[in-house]
Design a protein around this nucleic acid. Structure first.
Length: 139
DNA sequence: GCCAACGTTGGC
DNA sequence: GCCAACGTTGGC
């Protein structure tokens, strides 16, 4: 069983990377999109998650870790949605902006770029490694 | 089951 | 603030 990599998006004015740092852990809930939900359900404890700021920032700013795999989203009464728990793992030394990502030919495959509205998407090991390189950051 | 209308997201 | 993209809903 290999570890998977993901990317989640958040508007920093709603819940920022700094908020996650401050909280130490959070429930990633309220997702109401089927594709994103299925990605949440595929998350396992220990998976690594790139944290992207949409709107203000438009950059990957940190690496989070799944600390609890998918469970029923308590904010969805009577409906079938899922949540996971995330904890901050590492700041990116150089946040990687959308502009930089778009300029990288070998990152054109990223779900973030191909499906810009998907709030929870997969990241391949190669993409993940390249983002870390661009961020001048090591795990 | 198709497709038009609608709502939301998110970059610009 | 605008608008394109696209996911979802609902009428047929």
């Amino acid at each position: 069983m290999t570890m998977n990599h993901w990317l989640v998006k958040s508007e920093p004015s709603v819940y920022s990377w700094q908020d996650l740092r401050k909280d130490g852990r959070t429930r990633w809930e309220g997702v109401r999109n089927f594709a994103a939900r299925n990605n949440l359900r595929a998350m396992k404890s220990g998976d690594l998650v790139l944290y992207y700021h949409s709107g203000e920032g438009k950059e990957i700013i940190g690496i989070a870790k799944v600390v609890k795999g998918a469970y029923a989203d308590a904010t969805a009464k009577g409906e079938d949605w899922s949540a996971v728990d995330l904890a901050p793992l590492k700041d990116l030394i150089c946040p990687v902006t959308l502009v930089i990502l778009k300029a990288e030919a070998n990152l054109a495959t990223m779900a973030l770029l191909r499906r810009p509205r998907l709030s929870v998407g997969p990241v391949t090991p190669v993409e993940f490694a390249r983002v870390l390189e661009l961020a001048d950051t090591k795990l």
